[in-house]
Design a binder for these strands. Structure first.
Length: 412
DNA sequence: CCGCTAATTCCCACCACACAAAACG
DNA sequence: AACGTTTTGTGTGGTGGGAATTAGC
């Protein structure tokens, strides 16, 4: 059975959209994600060509196949031959990039078997960013261009990365795997491309790279209670870092808008730049994005970026499955070096009762906060996203409407 | 402290229709 | 039991309106 596009069911799926939890052919990807400004912001990447269920995060150059963390591990992690395969990171994109731009993002794009001869390619060939339906060149339209250009910029960054194509999952040292995935070898300190935040002054920056584009912040929520207790990590000098031991006071703030992102970034810059080594993980095998941070909304992404750049946390919580971590590329990357069943580190030896209590409290708090809607059927969401409405209500096909997501105009 | 009004925030029903599940032959 | 067809029920998002909450006097 082939792995068909979740939307049209006719073409083979090529890309995976995390927000929609759907695999799409390039044609439908473009159609669906040009529907409105929000859908254009969906971060997409290649779909794993092995399981066809998860987003790919790495491409095996030897096998010419894109793989999700699980399949990468299964295919390379345990195999002595497979582990020597050269691989390169798969970048994400948003907006409506053209085929040419996609090939810029993914240098192996032309290798994709179903692209060259499919209808999708014909569609993609005719795609351009400016073609995307926009609010008549309004801010949204520009945003698309910005998205695409950012994606290309990210790609350029990853091209640098490719020069250090890593081999084998164990190549990355535990404590530095995050940095290694982001930085050219030998970089003494994170120096990834930084994009100045609009509306801010000074050195406040927002980091950007596809690694974080993968981070689906919807799944995570960002409030941590009794940080040091939860992770069993003693800060070198907590009093200097936080006046309040409860980090909730720091991260639980309500953030809205881009400027707030930079506030977050600023906070974390101050936190981590000044105390890069202040937060030392008891064990940094794999960070539990689910258990370590919770972040309700995207605006906190800068914080998460910073946090992931420089923090790593102790082992996985029992409630989380590998699939949970695949929900975000960040955790996928964190997992890539080790199997999901990697046992806890021996040095993870802080008092287990204290930690379990802290984890229990965190789980309860998280459970109480779990009110966000979860889309069960991406296809239905995709339909609803493009359905015409009158005052927010669906209207019959052919009837007059006052809002059409595809062409934001009135029918009468 | 109580009562009233205005402003703000929050929650939910509504709509059409594709599709999954159940029922039936 | 297996298969095909028909029927039923569900879920999807933007909006308006009412309920609930808060602020001010």
């Amino acid at each position: 059975m082939g792995y068909m596009c979740d939307f049209c069911g006719e073409q083979r799926s090529i890309v995976y959209c995390r927000s929609d939890a759907a695999s799409l052919c390039l044609s439908c990807d473009r159609n669906v994600h040009s529907a409105n400004a929000l859908s254009r912001r969906h971060s997409r990447t290649l779909v794993c060509e092995r399981c066809n269920l998860q987003p790919a995060f790495v491409r095996c150059i030897e096998e010419k196949i894109s793989l999700c963390p699980n399949c990468n591990w299964l295919g390379h992690g345990g195999s002595s031959t497979g582990s020597t395969h050269k691989r390169q990171a798969v970048s994400c994109y948003s907006g409506c990039p053209s085929a040419a731009e996609l090939s810029t993002i993914w240098s192996f794009f032309l290798d994709l078997p179903s692209v060259g001869d499919s209808n999708c390619e014909q569609v993609m060939g005719s795609m351009s960013i400016s073609e995307c339906p926009t609010d008549s060149q309004g801010a949204h339209g520009r945003k698309d261009v910005q998205d695409a250009s950012m994606a290309v910029g990210v790609t350029n960054f990853h091209i640098v990365d490719k020069s250090i194509a890593w081999t084998g999952p164990s190549l990355l040292p535990h404590d530095t795997k995050l940095q290694n995935t982001e930085l050219p070898a030998g970089s003494p300190y994170p120096a990834s491309p930084k994009i100045p935040c609009s509306g801010t002054k000074g050195p406040i920056v927002c980091e950007d790279d596809s690694f974080y584009e993968n981070f689906n912040m919807d799944e995570v929520d960002l409030s941590i209670e009794n940080y040091d207790e939860l992770f069993g990590v003693a800060l070198d000098n907590p009093g200097k870092l936080f006046e309040n031991d409860d980090i909730d006071g720091l991260f639980g703030m309500e953030i809205s808008g881009a400027d707030s992102n930079c506030q977050d970034a600023h906070i974390m810059e101050g936190l981590s730049l000044g105390h890069t080594n202040a937060i030392q993980p008891a064990c940094s095998t794999a960070a539990s994005a689910d258990s370590m941070i919770s972040c309700k909304t995207e605006p906190n992404i800068c914080f998460a970026r910073q946090a992931h750049s420089r923090l790593s946390f102790s082992g996985l919580t029992g409630e989380s499955s590998a699939a949970d971590y695949q929900d975000c590329g960040a955790s996928s990357l964190l997992l890539m070096g080790e199997p999901p069943w990697c046992p806890p580190c021996p040095e993870n030896s802080f008092p287990s009762s204290s930690r379990s209590n802290a984890v229990m409290r965190y789980k309860e708090k998280k459970k109480a906060r779990k009110f966000e809607k979860k889309v069960r059927y991406a296809s239905r969401k995709a339909r609803a996203d493009v359905r015409r409405r009158v005052k927010g209500r669906f209207v019959k096909a052919g009837d007059a409407y006052d809002y059409d997501p595809l062409t934001p105009t009135r029918s009468c």
